[in-house]
C-alpha cells in the first residue's frame, strides 16, 4: 500500500503537492487551535482574557494560573486546588487498570488454552460489557455498592471500572491468545509447568503489544470517565474529571478562565503522556493479531 501511494506521490506534479501540503497544514492548524487557545490563555493574567484578547499571545507571561489550579483553587469546601483530586484519580486508575488488564489476560488465557464446554457463550456474554450503556447500570450498581458497603469510596469506583473494563480487556487478550500456538502450552505442560507458571513464564512475556493496547485503552477510559465518578464518588473522593467540572461550573465569584484552562490541561495531561510514551505500540498491538496468522 505504501509503495502504491509513493508512486502516486511521485507522479503528481509539484504544484499539486504544494497544494496538498497547504491543505494538510491548514487542517492541522485548525485542529491545533483549541490547544493553542488553552495553552496561551493558561499563561496570561485574567485581565488580558476579559479584555478581549483571547487569541493573542500574553503580554505578561505568568504561571500563576497553573499554580492556582493545582493547589489553591476553590473546589470543595477547602481551597485545595485540583491536587488531591488528581491523586484520587491516580489511586482509582492504577488499580483499576492493573487488575482489569491482568484479569483480562487470565480470561483470555483460559478461554483459548483451557477451553471448556460453553466457553464461547461465556465469552459472548462478557462482550456485553462492551455494549451496555453506562447509564443503564447506574441504579443497580449503586445498590450493589451500597450492599457491599463501598458507596462513595475509591474502592467502589475501582470495582465499577473493573467490572466494565474486564469485557474489553478479555476481548483483547482472547483474540491475541487465539493465534498464540497451543503447542507451546502443550510443550510447557510436558515440561512440567502448571496453569499459572505457563501463564507467567510463557504467555505473559509474549503479550507486550496487546498489554500496551489494553493499558492505554483502560487508562484513557477510566481517567476520562465522568459519569461514574460523579455518581459513585462523593465530595473529597471525587476524581479529577468531576473536580474539574466543579472548578469550571462554580457559580460563585469571578470566572477565572485562565485557571480553568490550566486545570483542563492538567486533567488531560496523564492520558496525553500515556499516548506519547506507549503510542507507537498501540498501532503495532492492534495490528498484531491480523498479521501473525
Amino acid at each position: 500500500m505504501s509503495i502504491a501511494s509513493q508512486d502516486a506521490g511521485i507522479r503528481t506534479g509539484r504544484v499539486a503537492r504544494t497544494f496538498i501540503y497547504l491543505v494538510l497544514l491548514l487542517f492541522a492548524l485548525f485542529y491545533l487551535l483549541p490547544l493553542y487557545v488553552m495553552l496561551v490563555n493558561s499563561v496570561k493574567p485574567l485581565s488580558e482574557i476579559t479584555g478581549g484578547g483571547m487569541m493573542s499571545l500574553p503580554q505578561v507571561w505568568t504561571l500563576e494560573p497553573w499554580a492556582k489550579a493545582w493547589s489553591t483553587a476553590q473546589i470543595g469546601v477547602e481551597p485545595t486546588g485540583l491536587r488531591p483530586y488528581f491523586w484520587n484519580s491516580i489511586s482509582m486508575v492504577v488499580p483499576a487498570v492493573a487488575i482489569s488488564t491482568i484479569l483480562g489476560a487470565l480470561n483470555g488465557y483460559v478461554l483459548t488454552k483451557w477451553r471448556f464446554r460453553g466457553d464461547t457463550i461465556l465469552f459472548g456474554l462478557m462482550l456485553f460489557a462492551c455494549f451496555i450503556p453506562f447509564q443503564i447500570v447506574l441504579i443497580p450498581m449503586a445498590a450493589v455498592l451500597g450492599t457491599l458497603g463501598l458507596s462513595g469510596t475509591t474502592a467502589g469506583l475501582v470495582l465499577v471500572h473493573l467490572v466494565y473494563g474486564i469485557g474489553f480487556s478479555t476481548l483483547y487478550f482472547r483474540n491475541y491468545y487465539a493465534v498464540f500456538p497451543t503447542e507451546l502450552v502443550r510443550a510447557a505442560q510436558i515440561d512440567g509447568a502448571g496453569f499459572f507458571r505457563i501463564f507467567w513464564r510463557i504467555l505473559l512475556p509474549s503479550s507486550g503489544p496487546i498489554s500496551v493496547v489494553c493499558v492505554i485503552w483502560q487508562f484513557t477510559n477510566i481517567w476520562n470517565d465522568f459519569l461514574f465518578g460523579a455518581s459513585f464518588a462523593s465530595g473529597d473522593g471525587a476524581p479529577m474529571t468531576v473536580a474539574l467540572n466543579n472548578l469550571v461550573q462554580s457559580s460563585t465569584g469571578v470566572k477565572e478562565y485562565n485557571v480553568h484552562f490550566a486545570g483542563a490541561i492538567l486533567a488531560a495531561l496523564p492520558t496525553l503522556l500515556v499516548y506519547i510514551v506507549a503510542g507507537r505500540y498501540f498501532v503495532r498491538g492492534l495490528m498484531a493479531g491480523s498479521v501473525k496468522g
Binding site: E183, L184, A187, R201, I202, P205
Partner: peptide, 13 residues
C-alpha cells in the same frame, strides 16, 4: 516422556 512438536513449540521469549 518428552515430545518434539511439528512447529517445534520453542518458547519465543
Amino acid at each position: 516422556i518428552a515430545m518434539v512438536f511439528q512447529s517445534y513449540a520453542l518458547y519465543p521469549n
